[in-house]
């Protein structure tokens, strides 16, 4: 076996190989997720970005290599212990029929509870804070089925927040949302990484996003993937270039300055074809 170096960041992958049945999706990938930053993973459909996120959140067992949390192999840690450090919001979570918003958010407290300690003041405080943070306090008694897509997504984020983890993984949190709700959710995610009383270094957030411009706008650290490999990573200003757009997405594009943030903005040009 190869020796595993101790990564500088809390969450990292070493020589990670991921596969579904026979199909290898990610092969021998190394990545370090910067602490207290928002990392966004981008890439074309099927590049393995969601698969990578699932592995970082132990929803998928590595075929080879390992995911390291605080220097220890994820696969060897008790799942409940992981759940107190890493939260994950899957791509399309489903709620049981007729569940109320408050009930669902409360279930985020699961890893902090046991059968004889089902509801503590810490649980109550965490849920209240999470609901206030996502602006859903008024919805507490409403059934989740009756909410709009934007509200529902905020409820799921609140549930993940109630889990009170230092790291939070989000798989395409803006899918199915209209543009204003997308911005709302992304602003919220941005805020999560801001240092606060409880977390002097801020939360570490990893999100998979489809929209490259949103990724460039909201990420501290951008990871671009293609065919199961990381093609480029770093600050969006360095990563988002016409060359990368061609290599990763096969798209001719012009990169201009975002008139609002000054960051990179991708404007697609004519479709690019390999010769």
């Amino acid at each position: 076996m190869t020796t595993i170096d101790t990564p500088a960041s809390r969450l990292a992958a070493r020589a990670l190989t991921l596969a579904y049945d026979e199909r290898v999706v990610v092969e021998s990938l190394d990545v370090d997720i910067p602490d207290g930053k928002v990392t966004v993973v981008v890439g074309p459909n099927g590049c393995g970005k969601s698969t990578l996120l699932r592995a970082l959140g132990r929803l998928l067992k590595p075929r080879g290599g390992s995911v390291l949390l605080d220097g220890r192999e994820l696969a060897k840690l008790p799942t409940k212990q992981i759940a107190r450090t890493v939260g994950l919001l899957p791509q399309s979570p489903t709620a049981p029929e007729a569940i109320t918003v408050g009930d669902l958010v409360g279930r985020g407290r699961q890893p902090h509870q046991s059968w004889w300690q089902q509801w503590s003041e810490a649980d109550e405080a965490a849920v209240t804070t999470a609901m206030a943070h996502t602006d859903i306090t008024e919805l507490a008694e409403r059934p989740v089925d009756e909410l709009s897509g934007g509200q529902r997504q905020r409820v799921w984020i609140a549930m993940a927040l109630a889990q009170e983890t230092d790291l939070l993984l989000l798989d395409e949190p803006t899918t199915y949302l209209d543009i204003s709700h997308q911005v709302e959710v992304l602003d919220l995610i941005r805020q999560l990484a801001v240092p606060g009383e409880r977390r002097p270094h801020g939360r570490t957030v990893v999100a998979v996003l489809h929209d490259l411009n949103q990724a460039a706008r909201y990420a501290d650290h951008l990871v671009a993937m293609k065919s199961g490999r990381i093609v480029a990573e770093g600050p969006p200003g360095k990563v988002v270039t016409p060359e990368l757009m061609r290599e990763v997405f096969g798209l001719d594009a012009v990169i201009v300055d975002d008139p609002v943030t000054g960051g990179p903005l991708v404007v697609p040009g004519r479709p690019w074809h390999a010769q």
């Binding site: 109320t100 408050g102 009930d103 509801w119 649980d123 405080a125 209240t128 306090t137």
Partner: peptide, 22 residues
């Protein structure tokens, strides 16, 4: 409705609707 997120330890709003606590 509620405006005290951090110190609302006793507020009933945080407990899942419909549940009592023993």
């Amino acid at each position: 409705m509620t405006g005290t997120p951090l110190t609302a330890a006793k507020s009933a709003a945080a407990r899942p609707a419909g549940y009592g606590l023993a």
